[in-house]
């Protein structure tokens, strides 16, 4: 058994209800079924990590929560996903409105080619916030929560793309925080940035998780062990077959006493 220097903390402050409930989820890219039979409850606040080998559908699953997959023609979702008890795939649900509540951070930092200020103000402006003092306040607060304020407060009019990779990623986090989402999806947010910045983002996740439900897809098992409270392990057993969720549980248990043989093989590095 691999020993991960996991700082898996017990959250004893208050009981956590399910923020997202997934039931019997199947996902299709055209004729190809990518995910099958996923049923899971993701708790409010805290960090849930999705781990598994490349191509096992973690990111696909993550993108179901803000319906980003809708943008890819030919995709189909069966089963239900409830966010706060509401079916987000119910007919008539506006994915645009959903995405304002469910923020997303991508693997490649993707600030808009506009100023740092405008990047953070982008979401509030979409919501119709136009008053300068109000925007100023939101921008400052969001950058502060993303631990970026000190570094950029003097250079807010400068282009977001002039920042370093790690700063850009925190800028993207600030941009998401500016619209006060209660869920933040992070799709391998640290795989394209330098180690010092990774540390900063992990610290940030730790601060944010008291208020926001964070789901992170990561290839880095140490990272999953460090930052998450719950972990889900995904696996596609054979090429061409749909992937499934093999095991879900408290991170401490997944990494120390996994119930499934395949989970154990993966986290001890036998494949993937």
């Amino acid at each position: 058994m691999m020993h991960v220097s996991a700082d898996v903390r017990e959250d004893t402050t208050r009981p956590r209800a399910d923020k997202i409930s997934v039931k019997d989820l199947d996902f299709y890219y055209g004729d190809f079924q990518a995910l099958t039979g996923i049923t899971v409850g993701i708790k409010e606040r805290g960090v849930t990590a999705f781990i598994g080998p490349s191509g096992c559908g973690k990111s696909t699953f993550l993108r179901c929560f803000n319906r980003m997959n809708d943008l890819i023609p030919g995709t189909k979702v069966d089963g239900t996903i409830l966010v706060d008890g509401e079916d987000i795939y119910a007919p008539g649900v506006d994915p645009v409105d959903l995405r304002r509540r469910v923020g997303m951070i991508f693997q490649q930092p993707n600030p808009f080619p506009m100023s740092i200020y405008d990047n953070v103000a982008f979401g509030p402006r979409l919501h119709g916030v136009t008053k300068k003092p109000e925007l100023d306040e939101i921008v400052e607060r969001s950058l502060e929560r993303a631990n970026l304020w000190k570094e950029v407060k003097e250079i807010l009019p400068r282009g977001g793309l002039t920042l370093s990779g790690g700063q850009q990623q925190r800028l993207c986090i600030a941009r998401v925080l500016a619209v006060e989402p209660d869920i933040m999806l992070m799709d391998e947010p640290c795989s394209a940035i330098d180690p010092t910045s990774v540390q900063k983002i992990e610290d940030l996740m730790d601060e944010l998780k008291d208020r926001i439900t964070i789901i992170i897809v990561t290839h880095n098992m140490q990272q999953a062990a460090r930052v998450s409270d719950e972990t889900a392990f995904f696996l596609q057993e054979k090429t061409g077959q749909p992937a499934e969720m093999v095991e879900f549980g408290r991170t401490a248990e997944i990494f120390t006493s996994p119930k499934d043989r395949r989970t154990e093989d993966y986290i001890t590095g036998r494949f993937g």
Binding site: N66, M68, L71, R99, F106, N110, R175
Partner: peptide, 14 residues
């Protein structure tokens, strides 16, 4: 850059 198109939609832009 394709990323910013995605980022915009993910921010809830139409």
């Amino acid at each position: 850059v394709p990323g910013i198109r995605e980022a915009s939609y993910a921010m809830g832009a139409t």
